[in-house]
Each structure stands twice: as structure tokens, then as C-alpha cells.
Design a binder for these strands. Structure first.
Length: 767
DNA sequence: ATGTGCCGGCTTTTT
DNA sequence: GCCGGCACAT
């Protein structure tokens, strides 16, 4: 054995060192089909990266022969980094992608075969909704109570089943006028996409499958290219994704990793049977179970196991850990959502300070999860007042903000000149006197003459507009031409800057007196830095590459590990992540399980899996909280504890301050809270009845959220000062930190206890 | 063409 | 309790 092979052998041995026997087998197994059933926290990312590195180190495959599909771009990037680290060299040429980004790559190469150009636009759900809204109006479909979201869901479901508009129309019940209407909208919607040279999210997958089936020579290229295909989160694949994998894996070995207990995307077509029937599906497939958990304490795992065992019809599986019991789970029942949020803020402060001991937990290692995005309101409210740095992951996404969509529409419109949606969007943004009537006239002219809206802009003289409008359109057309000419040579941020300057978009917002426009300016500046950052990371990247990347960012991609902030996100977004301390909020009937799931087949089991996913994200500290009353639609309703709470053995939970256990506070407690906090009197927030009235105004806070915040001006507190708080009553300052707008104060409020507050925005008054 | 103000519906979850 | 659509005013 020569030195070189000895070295190679060392390297491969090193790749399985420190792995448990099952993990090791999962790394070394070679065969056509492998299912790795990976319980939560069982080290599946480790197994996946080591397996890929092992395939390369043993010369089983070249990098270019490997395709690994992950759920988010962030996970893909992380995996590439880890493989590189393991091999000590970059494995360039590997396809490490999400389903959507892999399909985009394929579609850009082969787009002509589907009647698109390579520079097609990817429409997000907002774009789809805009088109559907127009079609519904045109067809008068609103009399059937059809909404853009409803029709959109129907079309999406169809596409996830690989139905196109024609097959949908064939299978529609002709006696059902609503179904026929949906079918008609579907047909026109597809026509619109094609005309605009665009695909929606679902098309990216579905059209790739259709491409492979219609053009076997194209499919063959990829079937020959890939020798190993690895798919993460396999339990959340839908039929279209499944079909895509089947096409691609014709000659390749397939490795899928997943956990049916964590399947939480049935609503977008995920079919749990893809994983549960894998062995039937791929005869001779090998299955490896990873049951040892390396993440959580035993108490957390016991709770998770107890909850999930209530789902029948699941292959039994029991997570275990070699680490100790750890702390008990902390439970809390608040009087209201605000009270619940206050508890969380207090706990976070405790965890964070721990008086700077070794046990102190950094903000970035703490996360708060919730079922619905609307729950962020109360949390943000309290966090701002408590001076806790936080970040909402997902939610109203950056790229869905109006001003960002406007700016992006300029870029999209010049990159894909056939995109009428984008062109029409910016026609009168900023206002240049081209109103609805003119827009419709332009669109009609385009329709009649088979032109794009963009082309019509250059023929404006034929439309007979007045000199003012004609001038405005000519100016716009010239600007678009100039911007378009920059694409081949200029950087993305240069193009964006030019667009923002020459259109006056920034200027208009800067001069506006709408307080929200201040935040919009900052968002646009943020967009410029995003573009600059992209250019730095991709020196060769051009505008279309940028648009590509932007169109496919997922919520979890926004996570910034370096930011010293608490992360707030939905339970869905939390999948695949882990934190030292986790707060599960709103564990109430109607919220988790969500009321909409009551009537959904399998809904109750899916919601339970969601709870299970939440529990298993925590390493050391798990908090479960709920509120006794919750406001929905502006109406306060009483809530009852979630049925899932009773599935956790009582001895695992330490219910704080709640007398009767089981999450229901005693009457005595309830009254004391109501009294101490001034609830029940209906005063809720800033009752403002404390003499001099500090102003409350719309304010953009540093994390991008726009929130109505109280402003105490330059108020600064010193130790010993007495204050009056609208909720907590009278209190004494016992410590302060920071100064100016960032000053926080620890204040002792009698029976309510000690609270840490951000002085500038807390509803307090010095007395 | 653009601005304002009221009414109604609405919220699961996401690439 | 917020956003969007619509009617009406400028």
C-alpha cells in the first residue's frame, strides 16, 4: 500500500470516527436506496455531510455526480461548508440546492423547449394573487365567492399533483359552475404566466417534471450526470417533488432522510406516505434508524415522546439521550397575551443575565415560537418595552414590502421585458401622471397587437395620449432602455442605484410626510446593501442571477447566527433549527391545535407533530405558555389550555405561579394579576391618565418592525427614583444601565416584582 | 388623476 | 384591529 492510498484510508476512517454504529452504517452504506429515519436531534446533518464527504473521499463519486437537496438555501450553504471542512478542500461542482433552486437551474438551460426565455421571472405568491385578482374580476367570478387566495390554493394543489390546466379542465365536474370557473381561471392564469415569460413557485417543480417527461433526451442528461441523490426532510415532499426525484434517480443511488413525526406541510401537498412507504416504493431499500438524541435533556425528550405517542399509525420510535434529566419544563398561564409575553420577557432577562455566570444564555441562543404570525404583535410590544433585542424571522418578509417590490419591479421589468406584471407595476410608481385609465389603454393596445406593455411604451405616439402623458411615457421608456443597457456590464448595485435615482423613487419617499415612508427609505437603502453584498459574493454575477437568488429566499435563510438577538418565528419556520432555550407560546385550543385544523382530515395529528417539532428544538430550557384570554379580530375571547398539554406527564412541568396545576391558574391568582396590572378595568395598555401625556407615535424600531410606541422623550432615571407604570403601578428604580435612548432600568413594583424596562418607551411616568 | 375616509372581511402554516 | 376596496371629493 503506497503512501497516497494510506492517506486516503486515514481520511475515510476519520469520517466515521465518533459516530454511533447506526450513524456509521448510514455513512458507509452503498446501495440503490437508503432511508435514514432520523429522529429529532439525532445528528442527521452530521450523517448527511459525512456521507457526502465519504462518497467523495472513497472516490465513489466526483463532486459533479452528487445532488443533495435541502429545505432551505441556508441549510445547503451550511452543508457545503461542512463538507469542505471535512475534506479539507472545496468540493466544487456539487449540486447542493433546494428543490426550487435546482429546478430553476435546469429550467434556465432548457426554457426554450417550454416556450419561455432563459430570463424568465419567478412569481411569488403575491404576484400570483395579483394576476388572479384581475382574472376573477374580468370573469366576474366573485359572484361565486371566489377569492384570489382560494383559487390560488386550488391551482397550487393541482400543480402539486402534477395536473396542468388542460388535465384539470378534463377532470372538472361540468355540472359544477364554481369548479368550471376555477378551471377557466386556471387556464387563463397559465396563459398569463406564459405571456409574461414567468413561472410561479409550483411551476418550478411541476414544469421541470413535465420537461423531463416530454423530452427524454433532457432527462437523460441529468440521469447520467448524477450518481448519488440525497434528499433531506423527505417527509415533507409532495407528489411533484417525489416525481422529480424519481425522474432524476433513474440511474442514481437515492438516499432520503426524514422523520414522519415531523411532517408538517400537508397543507402544501406534502405526502407522508412518500416516507412511510419508501421500502415498498424502492424494493430492496435499506432502512437505518437513528434514535439517539444528542440535542435535548431527558425531560424534554420524555415530554416529546409522550406527546407524539398519541399519534397512532406511526412506526414506534423512542428517542433517548445519554445526557441527564436536566431542568423541568416551565409552564405559565398568563391572563392575556400581553401577560404571557411579559412572562417570556422576564424569563429571557433572567436566562440572559444569570448574573453573568457560566450558565448565562446569549440572546442568540433563545427562540420564541408561535403557531400564527399574528401572535408576534403582543410579543414585539413587550419586547420593545423591555429592551430585549429580537428579530422576527419570516412574517411580512422583506421582499414583500411594497417599496421593495416596487424597486425590484424595475429590475425585473428590464431583465425580462416580456413581464407585463412588473412593467405595469412601475408604470406610475412614483406618480408620473399615468393613471388607471391610461394603464388600461396601454394594456389593451398591447393585448390587441400582441405586444408586451414594454413594447407599447416605445410606440406611445400611436396611442393618442395628450402631450403630458406622452412625455411621461417617453421618458419612462428611455429610462428603461438605459437601465436595460446596463445589465451586461454594470454591477447589480449600480443598476439599482441608477434606477432609484433616475426614477426619483427615493426622493419622493424622502420628501413625504407619511411617517412610514421614513422606514421605507431605510428599507430601500437596505436593498442596495443587499445588492452590494451579492455582488461582493458573486463578482461575476449579473442582474438575472441576483433576481434568481432573491426570488427563492426562505424565511430560515434570513437567520443571522451572529446577530445577538432573540429569534421569533412560527413553528413551521422552526423546523430543522435548535436553541439552548425555547419558548412555545399560545398553547391553547383553537391556536394549537389551530381551529382550522378541526375540520381538516388528519389535522389533529398534524398539529400534534407541530407541537412535537417545537418541543424538540430545545436543548436545555423549554418553556410552555398560554393565555386565558386572547384577542382575535379585535375581540377578546377566553381560551382553554390545549389538549396536548395533558399529554405531557405532570411531573415534567413546573407550573409557575399557577396554583391548581394543569395550566389553569387559581381564581385567587387570576384576581391578583388583574388587580396588580390594572387589567379587568379595561385599561390594557397606555391608559394615559397620568398627568403630563407623553406622546405615542408610529416609530420605526431598529429591527425593521413598525410599531406604535410610546415615547418618553429624554426621560432618564436614577436609582431611587419612583415611577408610576400603567400596568404595574408604583415602583422604585433599583438599577439602571445604558444611557440616552438605550437606557434600561430595573424597577421594583411591589407585589408584581422586578421588571427591566427600556426607559424611553415604557409606559411609565416619574413621580 | 389623486386623496380621503368608511366598511367589510379576515388569519393557519410557506417555497 | 389591520389592510384593501370602493365611493366620493378635489
Amino acid at each position: 500500500m503506497n503512501e497516497l492510498s494510506l492517506f486516503a484510508e486515514d481520511k475515510t476512517t476519520a469520517l466515521v470516527e465518533g459516530l454511533n454504529p447506526q450513524q456509521r452504517e448510514a455513512v458507509e452504506y452503498r446501495g440503490k436506496a437508503l432511508l435514514i429515519v432520523a429522529g429529532a436531534g439525532s445528528g442527521k446533518t452530521r450523517v448527511l455531510t459525512h456521507r457526502i464527504a465519504h462518497l467523495l473521499a472513497t472516490k465513489d463519486s466526483w463532486p459533479s455526480q452528487i445532488l443533495a437537496i435541502t429545505f432551505t438555501n441556508k441549510a445547503a450553504a451550511e452543508m457545503r461548508e461542512r463538507v469542505k471542512h471535512l475534506l479539507g478542500e472545496a468540493a466544487d461542482g456539487m449540486w447542493l440546492k433546494t428543490f426550487h433552486s435546482a429546478c430553476v437551474l435546469i429550467l434556465r438551460r432548457e426554457s426554450e423547449r417550454l416556450g419561455h426565455d432563459a430570463n424568465f421571472t419567478i412569481y411569488d405568491s403575491g404576484d400570483s394573487r395579483a394576476i388572479l385578482k384581475r382574472l376573477i374580476k374580468e370573469l366576474g367570478a366573485d359572484i361565486h365567492k371566489l377569492t384570489p387566495a382560494g383559487v390560488g390554493a386550488a391551482i397550487s394543489n393541482a400543480k402539486n399533483e402534477l395536473a396542468d390546466a388542460e388535465s384539470y379542465a378534463r377532470n372538472v365536474d361540468q355540472n359544477d359552475p364554481v369548479a368550471r370557473m376555477i378551471s377557466e381561471i386556471f387556464t387563463r392564469y397559465q396563459h398569463e404566466l406564459r405571456k409574461n415569460n414567468a413561472f410561479d413557485f409550483d411551476d418550478l417543480i411541476g414544469e421541470t417534471v413535465h420537461l423531463f417527461r416530454a423530452f427524454p433526451d433532457v432527462a437523460a442528461q441529468y440521469q447520467q450526470k448524477f450518481k448519488h441523490i440525497l434528499v433531506d426532510e423527505y417527509q415533507d415532499t409532495n407528489h411533484a417533488q417525489y416525481a422529480l426525484i424519481r425522474e432524476l434517480a433513474k440511474n442514481a443511488s437515492l438516499t432520503v432522510v426524514g422523520d414522519s413525526d415531523q411532517s408538517i406541510y400537508a397543507f402544501r401537498g406534502a405526502d407522508i406516505r412518500n416516507i412511510t412507504e419508501f421500502e415498498k416504493d424502492f424494493p430492496g431499500a435499506k432502512t437505518i434508524l437513528l434514535e439517539q438524541n444528542y440535542r435535548s435533556t431527558q425531560n424534554i425528550l420524555s415530554a416529546a415522546n409522550a406527546v407524539i405517542s398519541n399519534n397512532f399509525d406511526r412506526p414506534s420510535k423512542n428517542l433517548w439521550t445519554a445526557s441527564g434529566d436536566g431542568d423541568k419544563i416551565v409552564g405559565y398561564t398568563g391572563y392575556s397575551a400581553h401577560d404571557e409575553a411579559q412572562f417570556i420577557a422576564d424569563e429571557i432577562n433572567k436566562l440572559h443575565s444569570k448574573s453573568q455566570g457560566d450558565d448565562a444564555i446569549a440572546f442568540r441562543d433563545i427562540a420564541v415560537f408561535y403557531r400564527t404570525n399574528s401572535q408576534t404583535r403582543a410579543l414585539e410590544d413587550i419586547f420593545i418595552r423591555s429592551g430585549i433585542p429580537y428579530r422576527v424571522v419570516g412574517g411580512t418578509k422583506f421582499y414583500e414590502r411594497q417599496e421593495i417590490k416596487d424597486a425590484m419591479a424595475y429590475l425585473v421589468a428590464i431583465a425580462n421585458t416580456r413581464d407585463d406584471l412588473a412593467t405595469r407595476r412601475i408604470l406610475n410608481v412614483p406618480k408620473r401622471g399615468i393613471g388607471d385609465a391610461s394603464e388600461t389603454q396601454i394594456a389593451n393596445y398591447a393585448e390587441k397587437n400582441g405586444l408586451s406593455v414594454r413594447q407599447v411604451l416605445s410606440h406611445v405616439s400611436e396611442l393618442g395620449f395628450g402631450p403630458k402623458i406622452t412625455g411621461a411615457i417617453n421618458q419612462l421608456a428611455e429610462l428603461m432602455d438605459n437601465l436595460e443597457a446596463m445589465i451586461p456590464t454594470e454591477t447589480v448595485d449600480a443598476i439599482l442605484r441608477t434606477a432609484l435615482d433616475r426614477t426619483g423613487l427615493l426622493e419622493t419617499l424622502r420628501n413625504s410626510k407619511d411617517p412610514q415612508d421614513e422606514a421605507r427609505v431605510e428599507n430601500l437603502e437596505e436593498l442596495v446593501s443587499v445588492a452590494r453584498e451579492f455582488q461582493r459574493n458573486n463578482p461575476e454575477g449579473r442582474l438575472p442571477d441576483f433576481l434568481n437568488e432573491v426570488a427563492l429566499v426562505a424565511a430560515a435563510d434570513e437567520l443571522d447566527d451572529e446577530s445577538g438577538t432573540v429569534s421569533l418565528m412560527t413553528l413551521h419556520t422552526a423546523k430543522g433549527l435548535e436553541y439552548e432555550a425555547v419558548f412555545l407560546t399560545g398553547i391553547e385550543e383553537g391556536l394549537l391545535p389551530h381551529r382550522m385544523s378541526f375540520i381538516t382530515p388528519g389535522g389533529m395529528a398534524e398539529e400534534r407533530r407541530l407541537f412535537y417539532v417545537g418541543i424538540t428544538r430545545a436543548r436545555k430550557k423549554l418553556h410552555i405558555s398560554l393565555a386565558m384570554t386572547r384577542t382575535t379580530f379585535g375581540e377578546s375571547e377566553s381560551a382553554t389550555p390545549s389538549r396536548y398539554l395533558q399529554e405531557i406527564p405532570a411531573d415534567l412541568i413546573d407550573w409557575r405561579e399557577s396554583g391548581s396545576g394543569r395550566g389553569l391558574p387559581s381564581t385567587r391568582y387570576r384576581e391578583s394579576i388583574a388587580d396588580a396590572q390594572g387589567y379587568g378595568s379595561g385599561s390594557g395598555e397606555s391608559s394615559g391618565g397620568y398627568g403630563g401625556t407623553p406622546s405615542t407615535k408610529e416609530k420605526k424600531v431598529w429591527n425593521g418592525a413598525i410599531s406604535s410606541v410610546r415615547n418618553n422623550g429624554d426621560l432618564q432615571l436614577e436609582v431611587g427614583d419612583m415611577v408610576e407604570h400603567s400596568d404595574f403601578g408604583r415602583g422604585k428604580v433599583i438599577a439602571t444601565a445604558g444611557e440616552g435612548a438605550r437606557q434600561t432600568a430595573e424597577i421594583h413594583f411591589g407585589s408584581v416584582g422586578v421588571k427591566r424596562l427600556l426607559v424611553k418607551v415604557a409606559p411609565i411616568q416619574k413621580v
